[in-house]
Design a protein around this nucleic acid. Structure first.
Lengths: 123, 123
DNA sequence: CAGCATCCATTCAGATACTG
DNA sequence: CAGTATCTGAATGGATGCTG
């Protein structure tokens, strides 16, 4: 009854891991780090798009037509700061910038899948 | 190279599942449903606390001393609406209300673990 | 093409004060 | 004990217009 421990206890495991014993929201809590990376409207859709392959700014806008360039710009900067993607500028005209996920960004795949699975459950 | 498919491909799988083909944030997207359930400061800490066992309002406040009763009240109502927890009132005085996770709420354990694991990775 | 600057409406968290 | 009501300040998100 008391032995919940997440099921297939390989990991330290929430909620009993000592590092989970915080009494207030903390930027160094791994859960907060992950949720912060995904924070904001459109963020997961941008990541989903990049999980399919690298994209330019315009390609992202075309894939998400209702997303304004201001917010897209915000999201890309935020995800870059979180180490999820990298921006590559190419010299010349017209300017071309490509966005692609880092290895860390690609590892968001299973995380989004876990969220998807939970949200897709009936009830 | 193109076969990402999340690794242990049992599920339909993001990002290629047809239901992931939305072009704008949608409340019916499973990922949005899950992130919405966890949305808001303190939310994951409340869930973590309840993963350890059922709690009363006061016990939650004691576990999270910096959390105001207004926000705690908001979070509990939100999580109840998301089907994560249930509230049980006991008649009599003083009033006693217990909060405990639903089966669906308990299934957030692995989701939080996935977030934790990602956020705990170096770099 | 790929963006940043500015402005505005809305949402949110926290503080304070009050009830069944 | 277990909340709700109200208010304020801060943080979004989106629209519009302008540049390297």
């Amino acid at each position: 009854m008391t032995s919940q421990t997440v099921g297939h206890g390989v990991r330290p495991g929430l909620p009993d891991d000592p590092r989970a014993a915080v009494a207030a929201p903390s930027p160094s809590c791994p859960v907060e780090i992950a949720l912060d990376a995904l924070r904001g409207r459109w963020t997961t859709l941008v990541v989903r798009e990049l999980l399919r392959g690298e994209r330019t700014f315009t390609e992202l806008r075309q894939a998400l037509p209702a997303l304004s360039d201001k917010v897209l710009s915000d999201r890309l900067a935020h995800l870059a700061g979180a180490g999820v993607l990298v921006r590559t500028r190419q010299a010349g005209w017209p300017p071309r910038t490509r966005y692609r996920l880092t290895p860390r960004g690609r590892r968001l795949g299973p995380v989004l899948q876990a969220l998807w699975d939970w949200g897709a459950e009936p009830e």
